[in-house]
Design a protein around this nucleic acid. Structure first.
Length: 298
DNA sequence: AAAGACCCCAACCGCCTAGTT
DNA sequence: CAACTAGGCGGTTGGGGTCTT
């Protein structure tokens, strides 16, 4: 099927936006809100493609855009998130208030990629793969290359089982007379036996919580992953909590994959930590934004 | 001062996915 | 279920500014 263009290109302005166009777009969105991008240009009296309007608004005109250089903290976060997520710019930008995916992407491609492009000697096997770039034959330092390191797979049925167990235990232990803040939490801990106390744990708020705080913590060796993941990333865990536990526990669309290098670097598991053996837990589709399967596995 | 190289980043493009009809 | 729409995403481009020679 031929793809319909987002709009007719005839008679439309292209290239850099003028101040007048910016004002028209801003005034229109302030008055009518954003969305309906395809029809917006005509309604606002702009000779622009709807996509162009959306991009201009999201990347430049939005009032909450933070401009100026990225702080060292932001740079560090980008590096860490990129190591974990690859070129998921929108996800990375989502963790940087006021920063856009385009800005993060540009910043990475022009600055950070040069810093991080040198493949350092590592005890980990590295496998470079490409993302959706059509330029698969680029050299190894191409910005479109993403070095993805060993990743581990957490088996969903085991997490579900733990959660079932904990839910049942919680129900047994819950004191209905008490109404303290954690009384509806489901907390699970998977202890790692061979790492001398290194442990992995996760906890979820009760289902009435409907925010990014829903997943209150998923930490391995004491480092929380919740800072990286949004509530929506754990939608299937939500399903589990809401009663989807009867589903085939072996069934899994996408597995939560954890970057082993990051874990070992930041979570101090050490060489002897057989994470997969000890944390052989599968989160099901709980992190659908991560690549599934083969590309991550080495 | 001039010209070429390099860098930055706004904008564009094509593809994908979710939602709707 | 297929066709279609709308919105979103990531890769790439190109123009303008800056730097170097």
């Amino acid at each position: 099927m031929a793809r319909s263009p987002c709009c007719s290109k005839e008679g439309l302005n292209r290239g850099a936006w003028t101040a007048i166009e910016d004002k028209i777009l801003t005034d229109y969105i302030k008055a009518h809100g954003d969305g309906k991008w395809r029809s917006l240009p005509k309604a606002a009296g702009l000779k622009r493609c709807g996509k162009s309007c959306r991009l201009r608004w999201l990347n430049y005109l939005r009032p909450d855009i933070k401009r100026g250089n990225l702080t060292p903290d932001e740079q560090d976060l980008i590096i860490r998130l990129h190591r974990l997520l690859g070129n998921r710019w929108s996800l990375i930008a989502g963790r940087l208030p006021g920063r856009t995916d385009n800005e993060v992407k540009n910043y990475w491609n022009t600055k950070l990629s040069k810093i991080t492009a040198q493949p350092k000697e590592s005890k980990f096997d590295k496998k470079s793969i490409t993302t959706r770039s059509p330029c698969n034959d680029h050299d190894d330092l191409s910005p479109t290359k993403v070095f993805r390191t060993k990743a581990i797979r957490l088996m969903s049925h085991q997490v579900r089982q733990v959660m079932i167990n904990n839910t049942q235990q919680q129900q047994q232990e819950d004191d209905p007379d008490q109404n303290h803040i954690h009384d509806s939490n489901y907390n699970s801990t998977v202890e790692s036996e061979s790492t001398g106390g290194s442990s992995s744990s996760f906890s979820f708020l009760s289902k009435e919580e409907n925010s990014s705080e829903y997943v209150t913590g998923f930490d391995i060796g004491g480092i929380s992953l919740s800072e990286f993941f949004d509530f929506n990333d754990f939608c299937d865990v939500n399903n589990v909590i809401e009663g989807d536990i009867s589903a085939n526990p072996e069934e899994s669309d996408t597995d939560l994959l954890l970057n082993e290098e990051l874990m070992l670097e930041n979570w101090n598991c050490g060489d002897g930590c057989d994470i997969q053996a000890n944390m052989d837990s599968n989160f099901g589709s709980s992190a659908s934004f991560l690549e599934s399967g083969e590309d991550w596995m080495i």
